[in-house]
Nucleic acid binder design. Structure first.
Lengths: 137, 137
DNA sequence: CGGCATCCGTAGCCATCGCTACAATTCACA
DNA sequence: TGTGAATTGTAGCGATGGCTACGGATGCCG
């Protein structure tokens, strides 16, 4: 119990920063997916993708541009920076592993798709590695 | 890809409401744990537990009282309502299953403890059932 | 090339969860 | 009992992410 006090700042990392990072991962992954599927990514594409208003997307896109994850200009399409593309690749890979893993342990596909969206942001490299090992066995 | 548009409101349930619910689960679980360990739960106990200021705890406790999950009075200890205790029991059980499951697939205990904190809130009943099946096999 | 539909930005509201600074209450102990 | 330390509440700030309402930009098509 004592050592909890030191570790809780890590265990309960449900902080603003962590949450903002989840959003960043979701957004770069979505941008990559949308560009891959349709050639370009607009604010409205993201609004439809996440089922939020274009205003919310617009503000988040602006923030992520400030974090050097994506690039856009007013009334123009959105593209990823090198850093954003890297994050998107990692997020996509991790997402697929988590999804496949859930299916592998017997979760139905639809449930696995929903749960993996929430779970993926909390899977550390070590847990991801364990899931990978499980999948290749 | 088409059907994504309908499902995204479910898939990306990273909404205010969902996030607030995660907080509620963490808090009732913590209150139950603290009362179980020390007999009573005070604002400062929760502040230490989550490594946040007492102000943050105080505001959240007030909100959760409004949601009928816990009961307190100014400068008094915090206890759970029937509904809060029920949520705490479920959260604790789910937490333990996720933790045991991560360890079972080969994640070290410390990493499993960290990851399970984040993951547990996104594990549906079906996924939880799959984890339980895995553990009893 | 003008006008209208669509897309996007801005203004401004709310809720949640962080914080510091300060005020109020409680409680133990002198 | 009174007083000081510990605890808790309040005021007020910032960041993030929801929203509606409205205005400006773009671009297509007659």
């Amino acid at each position: 119990m004592q050592e909890d006090k030191k570790q809780n700042s890590v265990r309960f990392s449900r902080t603003r920063k962590h949450h903002a990072n989840e959003t960043a991962e979701d957004y770069v992954e979505a941008v990559a997916e949308i560009i891959d599927a349709s050639g370009e990514c607009r604010v409205l594409d993201l609004a439809k993708y996440f089922d939020v208003s274009h205003v919310t997307v617009s503000r988040i896109v602006k923030r992520l541009q400030g974090e050097d994850l994506l690039v856009t200009r007013p009334y123009r399409p959105i593209s990823l920076t090198k850093q954003g593309a890297k994050m998107a690749r990692y997020a996509k890979q991790r997402h697929e592993i988590v999804l496949d893993f859930l299916v592998a342990i017997g979760v139905d596909t639809q449930t696995a798709e929903i749960d993996s969206e929430g779970i993926e942001h909390h899977v550390s490299a070590k847990t991801l590695a364990a899931m990978k090992r499980f999948l290749t066995k």
